[in-house]
C-alpha cells in the first residue's frame, strides 16, 4: 500500500540512484585492482593503470598458480576454512545460546559474559601466544591455525543478542514438549536466527580464508602454508636499502600486479559464498521456520 504513494515513489527513485552510486563507488577500486592484475608490470608499477588493463597479460595469475605449492596451499586453505568455521560456529553458537539466558534463570551467566568480554580487549601478544601454541605441540598442525582464534567474542555477543530476540513463548512451548537445551537450541533458536548464523558464518569464512600471519608463525614448513600465507610469500620483498642486486633478482620485482591478483583471490570466497548465504537474509523466512 505505502509503496504506491507518490512520495514513496520519488523516494524509491532516489534510493535506487543512491544505492547504485554507492555500489559503483565500491566496485570501481575492485575493477581497478582487476585491471592492475591483468596489466604488464611496468605500467602497473608506475601507477599508470586506470580501470582498464594496460599491456594485457595473465602473468600475475600464471605466476601464482604455476607455483607447485599453489594447489596444496589452496586445499589447505579450504580445509582450514571449513574446519575453522565449523569450530567457531559450534563454539559460539553453544556459548551464545547459554549467554542469551537471563541471569535469573542462569546465575553464572554474567560472570561468563565478562570472562569473554575481557579477552576482547586484553591479549598477551605474539610471543606468549607462540609459546602456548608451541608447548601444546600444535606447531605445524592445522589446529594451530583454527584453535587460537576460534572463540570470536564479538560474533558470539552478536549471536547472543540475536538469540535473545527469540520469542520466549516458543521456548516455553518447547519446554512443555519436554525438549532439552540442545533441542531448543537447534529446533527453536537456530532456525529463527538463521540470518545471524549466516552472517557469522560469512565472517568466519572470510576471516579464515584471509588470515595469513598465523600461518607464518605457526607453520614451520612453508609447503604447508594456507593460501593467504602462501600468497604473501609470492610477493618479492626486498630490503632495498641494502640491496646489491643480481640482475636476475631485479627482474622479479613487479609487486603490484601480483598484489592485485592476490587481493582478488582473497575476495573470491565472498563472491562464491555470499550469494548463497544471502537467501537466509530474506524476510519472512522466520515465520516459515516456526510454522512447521
Amino acid at each position: 500500500m505505502y509503496h504506491k504513494t507518490t512520495g514513496y515513489r520519488i523516494f524509491s527513485v532516489f534510493n535506487y540512484l543512491l544505492l547504485s552510486l554507492a555500489g559503483l563507488l565500491c566496485v570501481l577500486p575492485i575493477i581497478h585492482i582487476l585491471a592492475v592484475s591483468f596489466s604488464a608490470s611496468a605500467p602497473a608499477n608506475s601507477h599508470l593503470v586506470g580501470l582498464w588493463p594496460v599491456g594485457f597479460n595473465l602473468e600475475s595469475y600464471t605466476k601464482t598458480m604455476n607455483n607447485p605449492n599453489f594447489i596444496r596451499a589452496f586445499l589447505i586453505a579450504l580445509e582450514r576454512t571449513a574446519l575453522g568455521t565449523f569450530i567457531t560456529m559450534s563454539v559460539i553458537t553453544l556459548a551464545g545460546y547459554v549467554l542469551s539466558k537471563d541471569s535469573a534463570s542462569f546465575k553464572s551467566r554474567n560472570a561468563y559474559a565478562w570472562y569473554f568480554v575481557f579477552t576482547m580487549l586484553f591479549s598477551g601478544g605474539i610471543i606468549p601466544s607462540y609459546i602456548v601454541v608451541r608447548n601444546l605441540h600444535l606447531m605445524d598442525t592445522i589446529w594451530a591455525l583454527v584453535l587460537p582464534g576460534a572463540v570470536q567474542v564479538f560474533n558470539m555477543i552478536l549471536l547472543m543478542n540475536f538469540f535473545k530476540a527469540t520469542p520466549k513463548e516458543l521456548e516455553e512451548a518447547a519446554l512443555i514438549d519436554g525438549a532439552g537445551h540442545f533441542t531448543i537450541l537447534f529446533r527453536v533458536y537456530l532456525p529463527l536466527a538463521m540470518p545471524a548464523v549466516a552472517t557469522m558464518s560469512l565472517f568466519s569464512i572470510v576471516g579464515n580464508w584471509n588470515a595469513w600471519f598465523d600461518g607464518l608463525l605457526y607453520i614451520n614448513d612453508y609447503r604447508n602454508y594456507p593460501l593467504a600465507t602462501f600468497l604473501q610469500t609470492i610477493i618479492v620483498q626486498q630490503d632495498f636499502s641494502k640491496l646489491n642486486p643480481d640482475v636476475n633478482e631485479l627482474k622479479n620485482i613487479s609487486q603490484r600486479t601480483v598484489k592485485a591478483a592476490q587481493i582478488f583471490i582473497g575476495i573470491l570466497p565472498v563472491l562464491v559464498v555470499y550469494p548463497y548465504l544471502q537467501k537466509y537474509f530474506v524476510k519472512g523466512i522466520v515465520l516459515g521456520a516456526v510454522k512447521e
Binding site: 563454539v91 559460539i92 553453544l94 556459548a95 547459554v98 569473554f116 579477552t119 610471543i127 606468549p128 540442545f182
Partner: peptide, 24 residues
C-alpha cells in the same frame, strides 16, 4: 547442561586468551 555448553568456549579462551596474558 548450560555449563557444559559453555565449556568448549571457556576452555579455548582460557588456553589461547588467558594463558598468554602472563606475557603482559
Amino acid at each position: 547442561p548450560l555449563h557444559l555448553m559453555l565449556l568448549p568456549a571457556v576452555l579455548l579462551q582460557f588456553i589461547f586468551g588467558y594463558l598468554p596474558l602472563g606475557g603482559l
